[in-house]
Design a protein around this nucleic acid. Structure first.
Lengths: 223, 223, 223, 223
DNA sequence: GATGAATGAGTATTCATTCAT
DNA sequence: TATGAATGAATACTCATTCAT
């Protein structure tokens, strides 16, 4: 608790724009370790399955066929692994959202639909990260290290809320709803689906999205 | 080591109703010691705030102003505390649901509305239990001890799904929705609200329920 | 909590012989780390001196000059240490017994004498293991883990009883004795000597054996 | 460890000849608590079955249908219970031994036979105490409190060894045996039988004694 | 890059014992 | 006599992390 970790701060890797020097010193060959990325993937799988806290560094190492101590050649803490996972997810989804907003132009209904489809679309590729966010966020947010995620969250919220408000102004969305509240409900409904969504199932992410769009736009009532 | 623990299963106390043979002793006054109940409440608060795993037995004891070992005079494991919390929640909500179903009679729309209002209504009194369910269920379900919760879940699902189907047959709900899927989305949307719902806030549980009912029944579109 | 311990069963190391798939790693050099063996020896000494239960993991670690947690790098439980000790003892003595039986051929008197000498002969090299068996068996046998020892015991009993019966049939042993009972008395008399037998004493294991053989074969009476 | 127990010393109860004031103060009605004696018996049974260390004060209390703390109204420590058990055993057997020696007169063979029969005869009435001695003595002897048992042991040893020596001098026992060694072997063989001796079995204590006397006096050889 | 050994701080749990009621 | 609550010290075991080889 209250880790006095030399590591706390911002994520080192993946950080900068172009060709960030990956780790302290060494000056590894730019696009560096596939090994590293492989390890992150293994860890993500475990974090999603058992939860961040319940997953031990040994679990990850065993999965990779090495000893736990050896992991510290690639990462400097367990936290930095999950950081990498979450950062990847957030960078990706925010880029996607921005694209949707731009493309959506002045059509709020189309934009919201696009955002919903995008969100559902991340369920499969970012399954592990989303699961971690759902299950372990309450724990993770306790560490200053992950404060940046809250900031990203705020930016995302603004995108959705602005679109909802625009829709109300244009008369396409009901006026008796609180945009902020509505956004949260939509957001949570999408992400929480990670708990029972099965990638290979007959109801894929697209099907889910369409089903939800129907309910969200027109309700369950038969008009 | 070689735990001869007789605890696994259902909580001992809480006997009240039918045949709680207390152990050898007296036959104490049914109401499972206020002390115990107080401790459960403290623990629930902590579990909700920090998560089940991250909450140590010491945390709970300190909160109660006693030593950690002393907790074992009242409970025989950390698990049995959370068990008591969750059992209480499930017993309560299922009773409420059954009442709604009965009272709803043959009006699916009213019944669903009642279920939604009931669910939102538990947010405040069962805040801690619901938070634990949302955050720690992934971990907790790994233990056979909590298998019974899954069974309760199934029973609840049946109530909702049956009502949704009845509504479709009566022509009040759209036919192009999957009842199971719809149930899940409604359920998750309600519970997940625990993350940002603030008991004292201007938007109380009732307000939330009404807002959600609007969206759920008629969608966000302006018709 | 929810021990995902893969350890229960037989000791991992000691693989040597046949098919010890080590885990994922290399395939290390058969001889189960000298460090480990050294630790087992230290533990055995303590178990013998203070008893299994009264010996704490800290005691063992302190004796080894490390911290108690560090022991778990080598063993996964206190039980697995004592298991290793007892297994070593049983494997050794059973092999010796089998050799005596084979070499004894058709001479029951010689065979019994050989068995007695063998048994006394283990007093010194297996002092600790035998002491543990004498003092802690009542406790240890309560754990399924050590059920295999009972099986080995049965096999040993058969060797002795068969030999005693053969002797009776050949007319070298009295007919008015119960072979099983006689075996038990001999066995216990030998092992119980561990309580006062001092390795360096003037009465070494061989002397003890010869003394006992005299009494056992011809009694204390002067004929 | 190194109990700073106010209680250490000699057993208070059972001590004096006639009407010892049983416990500190109160001046209870002379032949006092049958309750107390009952509790000792329950405890003895548990100690025998599970071992002294593995038996918790709660175990004993539960067996008696009271709470663990209540036991301290009768005894001032777990040790004092086992003390009472062992003291009772030793007092009884030493009295019996003395009687045999006196009655044996100048016939060493008859005396030894009497001692052996006496020893086997205690197996049933003192089953629990003997079991405790066999299994837990190694632990118990570490406490100064039980030093007096060693003294009693020495006295007993002297009785046997003197008799054996007398027999050698009279020419009834072989000269080539070490009296002390022989005594120990006989003693241990008898007590250790407690491990497999079953009170109700077809081979009762008397049968065991006779069987052993045969082997002890004349050996297993057919002459 | 990896091993193998160790650290150090922590975790849930146990248990003999005390004591006010 | 007994209860019920608590103590305090110990116990086996866990785990992220470090580091010499």
């Amino acid at each position: 608790m209250t880790t006095t970790n030399a590591d706390s701060g911002r994520p080192r890797t993946r950080s900068s724009g172009g060709g960030g020097t990956r780790r302290r010193g060494k000056g590894s060959p730019a696009l560096a370790s596939e090994r590293r990325e492989h390890l992150v993937k293994l860890a993500a799988e475990l974090f999603a399955e058992k939860g961040f806290q319940a997953t031990t560094v040994r679990n990850i190492a065993e999965e990779a066929g090495i000893l736990s101590g050896s992991l510290y050649h690639h990462f400097d803490s367990k936290e930095s692994i999950v950081d990498e996972i979450l950062t990847g997810f957030f960078e990706d989804i925010m880029a996607s959202y921005r694209r949707v907003i731009e493309e959506g132009g002045d059509d709020p209904r189309a934009t919201i639909a696009g955002l919903v489809r995008t969100a559902f679309g991340t369920l499969e590729p970012h399954r592990a990260a989303i699961t971690v966010m759902q299950n372990d966020w309450n724990y993770l947010r306790g560490m200053e290290r992950f404060a940046y995620l809250t900031k990203s969250e705020d930016e995302v919220e603004k995108m959705w809320v602005d679109t909802l408000k625009a829709g109300q102004e244009q008369g396409v969305f009901r006026l008796d709803l609180d945009p902020k509240l509505t956004y949260r409900m939509i957001r949570d409904t999408v992400w929480v689906a990670i708990r029972w969504f099965k990638p290979g199932g007959k109801l894929n992410a697209e099907g889910l999205a369409e089903h939800y769009l129907k309910v969200m736009f027109d309700g369950i009532n038969l008009h």
